[in-house]
Amino acid sequence: MARRLLIGVVGAGQASEKGARLAEKVGRRLAEAGAVLVCGGLGGVMEAACRGAVRAGGETIGLLPGPDPAAANDHVTLALPTGLGHARNVLIAQVSAALIAVDGEYGTLSEIAIGLKLGRPVVAIGSRWQVPGIRPVETAEEAVELALRLAEKRP
């Protein structure tokens, strides 16, 4: 049985309207490609991406910061309560073959930095971050296509 790629989607816990639309498209595209979406399992970009994936028949993993699996958004198909707070960002980067960033602030930036440190490809839609190693794109479709291509090249 072939293993499915785990692709992390990171972003704002309170997404802008545009960010939520982009995240939902990213989730849908990942599901259509057969990838499993990994995120922090809460609201904003995480919820929108999970919603898109689930509506397209995909699977989603939420690595929750707290101890309660019921805290996951309604579109997480597998909730894993870590009890680690922001330290769960390391787990998201570690288990993901690539990361896609949508919107976000310091928590997202920490996931990006950890992902880059771990050698994970990081694709950012409309990136406002000037961080070496981030691959900027403009659309959800470009983000998913590039993230999948880069993830498949990893050893």
Rank of each mutant, 00 (worst) to 15 (best):
L84K: 08
L150Q: 13
V26H: 04
G62H: 11
G107F: 00
L146G: 10
L5N: 13
A71V: 12
H75N: 15
T77W: 09
R120N: 09
R55A: 15
I112H: 04
G107E: 03
V54H: 03
R4Y: 15
T82L: 07
A35S: 10
G34A: 02
K25W: 13
R4S: 11
L118W: 13
R149W: 12
V38G: 05
P81R: 07
A147F: 00
A140F: 01
G85E: 08
A79K: 14
E138C: 02
G40W: 07
G62N: 10
M1Y: 14
A48G: 06
V90Q: 15
A101H: 00
K117D: 14
V95F: 15
P121I: 02
G52D: 03
L78R: 14
V10A: 09
S110D: 13
I100K: 01
P81A: 06
A23M: 00
K25N: 15
G52F: 04
M46Q: 07
G11W: 02
G8T: 07
L37A: 03
G62L: 09
A35F: 11
S96V: 10
A56W: 05
A101R: 11
L64N: 01
A98D: 05
A113M: 08
Q130T: 12
E17W: 11
D103V: 03
L22I: 11
I125M: 08
P121Y: 08
I100H: 03
R128G: 06
A79F: 06
N73V: 01
I114E: 14
T139V: 00
V36C: 12
Y106A: 14
Q94N: 08
T82H: 05
H75C: 12
G126Y: 00
V54K: 07
A20Q: 03
G44N: 05
L84F: 05
A31V: 03
R55L: 14
T77M: 11
N89W: 08
A87I: 10
A49Y: 02
R154M: 15
I125Q: 10
Y106E: 12
G119R: 12
G66F: 08
G107W: 02
G8C: 05
V76G: 07
G8H: 06
V131S: 10
I112F: 00
G44Q: 01
L63S: 03
D68F: 00
G85S: 14
L84P: 11
A143S: 00
V131N: 09
L6E: 13
R3A: 14
A48T: 10
I100C: 01
R154F: 09
Y106K: 15
G85F: 07
I7C: 05
G27M: 12
E17H: 15
G126Q: 01
N89Q: 05
L84W: 03
W129V: 01
V76I: 08
R88V: 05
V9Y: 07
G27P: 01
R88Q: 05
R135D: 14
V144Q: 10
E59K: 15
T108G: 01
L148N: 09
V9K: 09
P69S: 06
G8L: 05
P121V: 03
V9L: 08
C50N: 14
G40V: 13
V9D: 08
P155F: 15
